[in-house]
Design a protein around this nucleic acid. Structure first.
Lengths: 254, 254
DNA sequence: ACCTGAACACCGTTCAAGT
DNA sequence: ACCTGAACACCGTTCAAGT
């Protein structure tokens, strides 16, 4: 049972110092760097986060950043965890009530910080915040008879759902916003500038024989309004499907 | 009702010629370029797809590619749709049976081509393949009394689930594969090299008071084996939760 | 021990010629 | 009308000095 060395990124996320430095200063400075990077991402999106722009923001030379993070990739990993808020507190609520709030809060912070969606790593979670979300979901499910594997699976499924919905909302919101401002670009760059455009495009492109139901959907203007897609009602609708399924499973056990 | 010009990317995905060129040749060449790009992605991952590597593969100069696609981003969009297989045929199966197969097939091709996961755009689908998947799901649900909005929502939720599970499988598979080959890199680069490592890391990092349930999970070796995560049983488990929820909804209507 | 500027590597893309 | 090489822009990162 040898303790293997922690990967540097992980160590940094947990405030454990990696290299040998003197005071408690360095970790504080890391926090400042992370905050700067998060601020840039909030304002300009992920594309704005360059080693140079982050360094400028904190008043260092670009190269100095490499004293605090091993690479840009590490910086992104650390800032993703830091930008994740604390999960809702349990407060003794029953699992269904809590998990509904948990999933909704999960979606909400992804909508607030859509750049987190692009950072969904293909790596299991290792940061303090992300793991706290997982722990709280497991805790809420502890009173049920479900085993750990099932509980972990439920938590993954719900996060997945939150992510899906956030992605959907985000693409619709930006599409709608683009329509509002970009009557100018209508001719030019060819990006999809709104939901009306989207329906328009599908209408031009779909062969009704090959895509019968989609064509019907487009013709009936099911894609007409952005509000429909970012509505809480739709989110709750799908969430209830999931929770009903979980409830069925739990009662089947009892 | 003016027909707005199709965005170039969309036109290209549907085989409609964008610029003015002479014969039917060009579109064929586009297909060759796409195939080359997909081949590279399959072999080396998305990082291997460079304008230069794709051009080399088809025996053109790098710059010639810009005759066929407007930018690398366009290339990625087009190749993502082209790399998506056809959805399963309905064959008169009841909605629940079909959607189960549909979701499983969706996950399967994402597991086969994990680079598609990184290409999950923040844009609604516009390609022939992706839209065919959507259409088929709507068709399967047509006999139910659900309205179009609900059916679209169900399809989104199921794709989302497939994506979540594929992501999970993928991170676990690569983690496991890395363990097998990388006893060498164990000391060095600090990447997570396996599930055993993952449990190890969590164990070192978690404070049992702050993360009570997660700690318990780690101690009970719930993260122990990779097989558990890529098992069909887990996938079906979550899928059934969703389908149960949908079924509840449908019968509630009737 | 910490910080930094110059230099390099890599890659997408513009542009002006080529044929 | 199509193709292409040289050149540029951008950005992450190495390295050898600075203090």
């Amino acid at each position: 049972m040898t303790k293997r060395a922690l990967p540097p990124v992980v160590a940094r996320m947990w405030g454990r110092d990696t290299g040998s430095r003197h005071g408690p200063r360095p970790s504080l400075d890391l926090a400042r760097i992370i905050d700067a990077a998060i601020g840039i991402a909030d304002r300009e999106g992920l594309a704005g986060v360059r080693m140079s722009s982050v360094a400028a923001q904190v008043g260092m030379a670009t190269m100095s950043l490499y004293r605090y993070v091993g690479s840009k990739d590490e910086l992104l990993t650390v800032m993703a965890d830091a930008a994740t808020p604390e999960p809702p507190t349990l407060d003794g609520r029953p699992w269904r009530v809590y998990l509904a709030a948990w999933t909704q809060a999960n979606r909400d912070f992804l909508v607030d910080r859509p750049w987190l969606l692009s950072l969904a790593h293909h790596t299991p979670p290792t940061g303090p915040r992300t793991l706290r979300w997982l722990d709280r979901a497991l805790t809420a499910l502890a009173p049920t008879e479900l085993d750990l594997g099932q509980r972990i699976n439920i938590a993954s499924t719900l996060t997945g759902y939150a992510t899906t919905q956030a992605t959907l909302s985000h693409s619709m919101i930006t599409a709608a916003a683009a329509t509002a401002t970009a009557t100018t670009s209508a001719a030019g760059d060819g990006s999809i500038t709104g939901l009306a455009d989207y329906g328009d495009i599908l209408d031009q492109v779909l062969d009704p024989e090959d895509y019968p139901e989609l064509t019907a959907a487009v013709r009936s203007h099911a894609f007409g309004t952005a509000e429909k897609w970012i509505d809480d009602a739709d989110f709750t609708f799908g969430l209830d499907l999931l929770l009903d399924g979980i409830e069925t499973l739990i009662t089947r056990r009892g």
